[in-house]
Nucleic acid binder design. Structure first.
Lengths: 255, 255
DNA sequence: CCGATGGATTGATGTAAATCAATGCGTTGA
DNA sequence: TCAACGCATTGATTTACATCAATCCATCGG
């Protein structure tokens, strides 16, 4: 996990001069590690305009940068690190609604306040646009709008899967689904059947809040999977999937 | 619940001649009961083009018309009735991910197969577009694309709320949240504080599958609310909210 | 009119996961 | 070096909800 974004369309991260601030910055909305990023839909000539509109921000681990209910002034594009998105009840119960990896857009609210909070898990880089600037950009770059619609659709599909998980799956099924999802996100060697090493950036508490479980249940379930030879739980945040196929059976409800 | 769509922008449903089929039909994507429908973002001159692209279909209660996993050939706009959207596990466990009322778009999949199933609850009318036609329309009507992005964003917010509900709320909180949501959808007299009569189109089973509960728990919870004087459970599908404020306290987790 | 059917309600019992509680362990900082 | 802290694991106990089961009550077809 380098915190320097790389781009499949360029040999090295591109550095440009930011308009007003004069700061150098890595590319943001136009150059991220995600294959479906706007990289491939924005014309070369438009890039500088996009970049001028953005301000890069580096957010340290644990720092919140979107507060649920606050006025939705900005729009973000994650370029490095992992962000957790969540909603909370007044008594502190918390539901993480998703994790945003590089390439994701945040703050696509229609209302004028944010519907969720966001907090950096590890060191996060975002490019920040004002909402009015964003609206301008949408008017000028139809391809960007198409891209946002695509992203929103993808998130909707993910949200539906998560609703099925939260409403109807058992603890074991939830944890198995989570591990497989994380495997599919952590692209590199892809699922060829062999063991797959994951390096999860989030704590057990985050996983619990994402899966609608408690820390203890997540921990017990991982221990059970270990006892079954399905996974290996390493030091820190490392988990190795030893039998993707058995996890698959579990996750889909056939366990 | 008349099955004839009415439109706030016209005194009576508009009837037009469908291009190829020659059938008469009520207006669809351009004229629904929802205030945020495309009604207000499509120019008058574009209406006939939109209408030509659509085929109206009437779907009887209980009939499914989108199958989870099937090739995503069509795109729909609901014009009357209520549709339930759901995902299922192989052993039959089911999660209803949402209800689509008139004005909603369905089938906004990025992948080439549907991520969810859809079934008519009561008699439903939809306008059906082929996906390729839809893509053409998006190219020609930027306002339609903006409208879809808006709708997707709204659904995303709703999905996040539902994840909080499914992951962290108790049965009582879930049912209270559901009743209040239904109240806000069933617009007419709006929440002025007094009792509010709901006519829910869905069964207890649907409610249970939407809230991640069983039929028995939904029934017991409604009975408990009745015993507390919060609601009145009428014959059939009628429920009257007697104390919106107490339901509100419950729903937000302060009960 | 009446048996069959499907939805809803209510009661008795079981259980998966939450809660309460103790321990270990790696990192941090005085 | 060694508290102090956060995070994780594991065990004992409780509980909210599911499951199993019985009954009621409309609607519907013969």
């Amino acid at each position: 996990m380098s915190d320097m974004p790389s781009c499949q369309f360029e040999s090295r991260p591109r550095r440009i001069m930011m308009g007003s601030s004069g700061l150098q910055t890595d590319f943001c909305a136009t150059c991220t590690v995600r294959p479906n990023s706007v990289c491939n839909v924005i014309d070369e000539g438009d890039i500088s305009r996009l970049a001028e509109a953005a301000v890069e921000t580096i957010i340290p681990p644990g720092r919140g940068f979107i507060e649920e209910g606050a006025p939705a002034t900005d729009f973000f594009n994650v370029t490095a690190g992992t962000v957790k998105l969540f909603k909370a009840l007044p008594d502190g119960r918390r539901q993480i609604t998703g994790f945003a990896a590089p390439g994701h857009f945040l703050g696509l609210a229609v209302s004028d306040s944010y519907a969720f909070g966001a907090e950096a898990i590890d060191t996060v880089r975002v490019c920040r646009f004002s909402r009015e600037k964003m609206t301008e950009l949408l008017d000028d770059f139809p391809k960007l709008e198409r891209r946002l619609l695509e992203e929103a659709s993808n998130e909707l599909v993910a949200a539906q899967n998560q609703m099925l998980l939260l409403g109807r799956k058992t603890a074991r099924e939830r944890v198995a689904s989570f591990l497989l999802d994380q495997m599919r996100i952590g692209q590199p060697p892809a699922g060829n059947g062999g063991p797959c090493r994951l390096n999860l950036p989030m704590t057990r508490g985050d996983i619990a809040d994402y899966l609608g479980l408690t820390i203890e249940t997540v921990s017990r379930t991982l221990s059970w999977m270990r006892s079954q030879g399905m996974i290996e739980v390493g030091k820190g945040y490392a988990i190795t999937l030893l039998s993707v196929s058995r996890l698959d059976v579990l996750a889909s409800g056939n366990g």
